[in-house]
Design a protein around this nucleic acid. Structure first.
Lengths: 210, 210
DNA sequence: GTAAAAAATTGACAGTGTTCATTCAATGCG
DNA sequence: CGCATTGAATGAACACTGTCAATTTTTTAC
């Protein structure tokens, strides 16, 4: 004899719609656009309505970030597949990663720069990040098991990710003025891959000369 | 017949003191600690007094960031000198860069993560960043002119910086869980340097096989 | 139609950056 | 010394923000 609670679908629908609006407003107005009142204005609801669907604003940001990671994973997926020469595929994946950062800078910034000290408290976010991360890891591991790269796949893939992210972060931070990222991405990918070529030597440097 | 205006020294003294307090409060309380009212509490002045010494809070953040870059430059300076083997020095510089990010994470985060869309509007900030950047550039260029590295010094130094920053950013962002940064820094430095060794080939890859 | 329960809204609170009118303080002159 | 003048510092206020509590609206079953 009472009003029924919200369906699981209704909840996820509202959350999805709010995340889309938040993303668009982030692109248009920056950080200032994702205020609860700003979102409510565009959603046509009260500023406190989202509190029934999210615990607080941090959970909203985590959901938005998770969707940004999802798009990154989706963007990189075609180049992480099991077909083609492993090294060429890995190189293409690096280019795709940086193309995503260039073409969807807002998504990349939301994924990596939205300040969230306690990001590990949101399983959805961790899972989406893991999904994006595995695009890189699988491609690297495939090259390793195929003998095209040497060293620990976990180490090499982390190096690969860090190199790509370093370029993307400096680019998006406007710190690459004298040299555009287009001139740096190929040398970076090549350097990181060459550093793990089996003919050159293992990546876990144990040559005692430091 | 009037009160004399503030001395240049008085102005810079107050600015310096405010920046120190802001830095300490950022370390202790995070972003929430650098509010105007929080700073005023510790400075023993009114929340609006800083407005005579800074245009707005963005200018305060720019000054804080500039001092963080200064510390990074000071930290890396001993390894960018003209003495010693160029490659060993460059490697040591890379380690020093990452040690700074590890030992002074707050300074590094302030330098690179404090959200400032219009950072290029603050000459002091640009100059301090340039100072830190030149620690890297000079070390790389020295290795290039000595014949220890090949390729354009500008390209190689940007790659070096991006690689270091990528590791530092992922580390500080808590994204390196399965693998600590200590196990990654040496492979990263070696990979980047090996990618520019003259015996291996030029860094600007022009081998047409992609 | 009415009772009950869930959803949504309104109003308020403490906090933020910032502006402006006001007060305080320090100086040179008579 | 007293005082006018001028810069420095302040307090009050405004428009925001995220968030909670009380209230109102909506939707169902009897």
């Amino acid at each position: 004899m009472a009003r029924p609670a919200l369906t699981e679908d209704e909840i996820s629908d509202f959350r999805e719609r709010l995340c889309e609006v938040a993303t668009r407003r982030f692109v248009e107005f920056g950080d200032a656009g994702v205020s609860l009142r700003g979102l409510a204005l565009e959603l046509g609801c009260s500023p406190t309505t989202p509190y029934r669907y999210f615990r607080d604003k941090d959970e909203i940001l985590a959901a938005v970030r998770a969707r940004a990671f999802d798009r990154l994973a989706h963007f990189a997926a075609p180049f992480a597949g099991p077909d083609g020469d492993p090294l060429s595929q890995l190189e293409a994946l690096g280019f795709a990663y940086l193309r995503f950062a260039r073409e969807e800078p807002h998504a990349y910034r939301m994924a990596f720069e939205l300040s969230q000290p306690e990001a590990s408290a949101y399983p959805e976010l961790l899972q989406s990040r893991q999904k994006a991360w595995q695009m890189i890891y699988r491609a690297v591991r495939r090259a390793v098991v195929a003998g095209a790269l040497a060293g620990d796949a976990n180490v090499v893939s982390h190096l690969f990710w860090a190199g790509m992210h370093g370029l993307a972060a400096l680019h998006l931070g406007g710190q690459l003025e004298s040299l555009p990222i287009e001139k740096l991405q190929k040398p970076m990918v090549r350097a990181l891959l060459r550093g793990a070529l089996p003919s050159v030597g293992p990546t876990t440097g144990d040559t005692p000369d430091a």
